[in-house]
């Protein structure tokens, strides 16, 4: 067992996760698209993005999902097990923006040993980029 992992009992509804600031760079947008094997042109080709009505390349959904996932598992620790990520998308993330991710524990299921985290990602230009609900199983204290 890893000592870096939160215990189910130690987590309470209303607990806030420390916010994480994510500068949106071209490297993050393109790197995220490539790491997720998503070669849709709007995520790496500015002209294609402009034809789609946006001024620059924009973050793909898999990267948003990945940022939610890493935000929660970085908090919960290595022994946690992510069960479900519900993601709702808002305004796009473009290079030059800064997204702030915040989270709060909103539910606990004693039977399953899972907690639910509401995650919000807001960028400084267009506001809500993503809202997510993450169900994650935490180990119980020995």
């Amino acid at each position: 067992m890893s000592s870096e992992t939160l215990n189910f009992e130690a987590v309470q509804i209303g607990d806030q996760l420390a916010p994480r600031e994510v500068p949106i760079t071209a490297a993050l947008v393109v790197g995220g698209a490539v790491a997720s094997r998503d070669f849709t042109p709007v995520h790496h080709d500015r002209k294609a993005a402009q034809q789609a009505g946006l001024p620059d390349v924009f973050m793909n959904i898999l990267t948003s999902n990945g940022l939610v996932g890493s935000y929660v598992t970085n908090w919960a620790g290595p022994d946690s097990t992510t069960k479900k990520i519900d993601l709702k998308l808002g305004s796009p993330n473009l290079p030059g923006f800064v997204m702030t991710i915040s989270g709060e524990v909103v539910a606990k299921d004693d039977a399953l040993g899972t907690v639910e985290i509401a995650v919000l990602g807001e960028n400084n230009v267009w506001g809500m980029h993503m809202q997510a609900k993450v169900q994650i199983e935490l180990p119980r204290s020995a």
């Binding site: 067992m1 890893s2 992992t5 898999l62 996932g69 022994d79 990520i85």
Partner: peptide, 25 residues
């Protein structure tokens, strides 16, 4: 040394394994 007992893929990566890759471009 963790409860996982070895390397796992990040859970949020699931969809990646179904992606078509470079031909999409």
């Amino acid at each position: 040394t963790t409860a996982k007992g070895g390397i796992i893929a990040p859970p949020s990566m699931l969809q990646v394994w179904s992606m078509e890759g470079y031909p999409m471009a």
